[in-house]
Design a protein around this nucleic acid. Structure first.
Length: 197
DNA sequence: CCCGTGATTTAT
DNA sequence: TAAATCACGGGG
């Protein structure tokens, strides 16, 4: 069972928490590559000075953030890395959730091939994209209808707060007071997160 | 700690 | 046009 449109059409903090423990699936060469989402970050829109949509900024690069909830926003950065976001909210609300780490569950050999190593397969936003062969060609894909990139429901209810750790977001020191906001969500004690709280 | 790497953004 | 930046990762 795959997550449906109403799941995504909510605020990014709610979606960031609800995505923990769900399963990201990528199909390459008829093979499933998958992992449980164990770390996310919420990006809140125009007022959020860490978001690509800060101050209402809109460009060819980030326009997918303005699409309907359930769209993938994949961008290229540092000349070599891709990162994947799940767009939330409604059309023209530029809010999203960055996927920062997975616990790999299917297709680990193929992931290792893509990564060039069998270590740290999916613990980091660029590592998980490399492992699952996620690049800019998937920017704008609809996760609700795509056959090659989607999220499956593993549990109906959001994990209890006692199982979720909350910290400031990683790598957004330029964002002033927004850098300190508690908008990073991790499954507590999961060894596959990118950095321990 | 430093640095690669190149698209994107911002400054001139 | 040119310079600075970057939601990162790998290697000392």
């Amino acid at each position: 069972m795959r997550l449906s449109r109403p799941f995504y059409r909510r605020d990014p903090v709610t979606v960031a928490r609800a995505l923990l423990g769900q399963r990201l699936v990528r199909v390459v060469n008829r093979q499933r590559l998958a992992g449980l989402i164990v770390e996310t970050e919420a990006y809140l829109g125009p007022e959020d000075q860490a978001a690509h949509s800060r101050n209402g900024h809109r460009s060819p690069r980030n326009q997918a953030m303005y699409a309907d909830g359930g769209t993938a926003y994949v961008y290229f950065t540092y000349g070599m890395h891709h990162c994947m976001n799940v767009v939330c909210g409604r059309l023209d609300q530029p809010v999203a959730v960055l996927l920062r780490a997975l616990e790999p569950t299917e297709g680990l050999d193929a992931m290792a091939d893509h990564r060039g190593t069998s270590k740290h397969l999916c613990d980091g936003p660029a590592r998980l994209c490399q492992a699952l062969a996620i690049d800019r060609s998937l920017n704008g894909v609809d996760l609700v209808t795509s056959d090659t990139l989607f999220i499956e429901q593993v549990h109906r209810r959001t994990l209890s707060s006692s199982r979720i750790a909350v910290t400031p977001r990683i790598g957004v020191d330029y964002a002033g007071e927004w850098a300190d906001r508690p908008l990073r969500f991790l499954i507590r004690d999961n060894p596959h997160v990118s950095r321990r709280p």
